[in-house]
Design a protein around this nucleic acid. Sequence first.
RNA 1: CGGGGCGUAGCGCAGCUUGGUAGCGCGUCUGGUUUGGGACCAGAAAGUCGCAGGUUCGAAUCCUGUCGCCCCGACCA
Length: 566
Amino acid sequence: MKASELFFPTLREVPAEAEVVSHQLLLRAGFIRKASGGVYSYLPLAYRVIKKIMNIVREEMDRAGGQEVMLPIIQPRELWEKSGRWDVYGDEMFRLQDRHKRDFALGPTHEEIITTLVDGDIHSYRGLPLLLYQIQNKYRDEIRPRFGLMRGREFIMKDAYSFDLDDEGLEVSYRKMYHAYHRIFQRLRLEYRVVEADSGAIGGNESLEFMVLADNGESEIVYCQNCDYAADVEKAVCQAGPEDLMVELGERQKKETIGMKTVQDVAKYLNIPESQVIKTLLYLADGKPVVAVVRGDRELNVIKFQNTLGCFELVMADEKAAKECCGASFGSLGPVGLDLPVYADLEVQTMRNMVCGANENDFHYVNVNQGRDFAPLAWVDIRNGVAGDPCPQCQSPLQMVRGIESGQIFKLGDKYSKALGAAILDQNGESRTMIMGCYGIGVSRTMAAAVEQKHDDQGIIWPLPIAPFQVIVVPVNSNKEDQMKAAQAIYDELSAKGIEVLLDDRDERAGVKFKDADLIGIPLRITIGPRALQENKVEIKKRWEDSNELVPRDTIVEKVEEILKG
RNA sequence: CGGGGCGUAGCGCAGCUUGGUAGCGCGUCUGGUUUGGGACCAGAAAGUCGCAGGUUCGAAUCCUGUCGCCCCGACCA
């Protein structure tokens, strides 16, 4: 492909609308253009990358025994009513009507369609196991689409669904997908981590997320370097700390702390670490006041708290409610003498001589000790994990990184098959509900995640397996016949080897070509310059390294093949 | 949905307070000189100032409404 004929409108300046790196670079490098909030066009370079990701995914799905299908995007309302999700899905579902005023949804996901499809034509256990997948657009009317391709309203997703006779079968399918996903992310050459996903809300079912590591990913992950444990901070299992039995319990005292509202203020004022203070947070669970207590330097994890309570709605109470329930404003609350259900984080259990609000404005207690001064209704795990927490499996200190949720595998069980009545006959002629799993990879999001992970201040650095072109050949001056001739010859030779090459034949100055090559992130650049050409040499540069290398013209094809292999 | 910000040429922005025939940089086009990290000179094209209504002799500018975009939050997985 000649650069002069390629549609890749690069921008010198960062469009004002883009905040995150992947969004900025994909716009600047001429990969994507916005059609509407969260809806993008993929230009040729982007689509080349997308197709490569799709092909890797496709090959691994096929290898795992999957069969590719293409399901409708437009889905009738009745299907969604059957599963009960027409109402539940809410505003996040794009809806439309046909000319007869019949309701449809633009598929946000395909459990309904596929379960109905399989139920219609598989009636015997002999038809199982079955693994179907597709790669196509999904539609979710996100409350707030953001960060370019990272959270779009229309996005490309691979979704796979497994159907088995029983849980043992599901286990086999799930494991196959687990290994397939590992292969996929390894082949994409992205650094990633598998973490446990929330299973509380849906109840006991297993789910794992494949996170592509990136400095400004949406998720925070803690992981263990010693064993294989990893989890989102919101889901990480937190434990009680060790108790220091040598610390003597002091006598509880009330101290005046005028104007001291935050944990920081109080700790500073009393000259103690924040970890000696406890935070008392008042929430309304389905309208009823409940209290959460966590160490002063920790964050309450609202999801964990809600799962603990098992309530439907959990909102933070306002100042007024605090005054009514506890007799003091925020900043002066404490569990001592509170006549409310108190849930305290496990970590608080082993703290000694804590500091907390006295439920009286501008007063705090010091030397508060659990058991003697207050007793919570329950000791529970309700805080966010942090780096340094002990690993729940092996007790080594956990590390923290950020990541982008790129794939997820999930044991659905009979959730949809039951609702939609998808049953089959087993060996004994008895009717059984099929057991399902579902497995997603955000293809367009993965492209964005790759950019987030692989870039520098000059632009994108595509991993070789998904680069839009593997090599760019740059004659320093396209008007010099000898340079163009050499460039064209190298282009032909590489192309003949099946290598994807971009020939920058544009009548631009060298600087412009180099900048563009760096920006669009082609892994290998071959530069044909006048001086080297005199000695019958050309220059090769790896996008991910600073230095370049002069090699004899005759060996360049060999050289490229060698790098591509390694 | 709440809070904040923004809509002026393809991109980035100024002009708006104090109303008077729309500007800058980059990009684009033409000609020339240049040619190893976003060249230079000369010339040119390109904008219903998001949209609608109002005030006014006159609105990019003031008022009202509306649409869209971005960020934070709530929400969701």
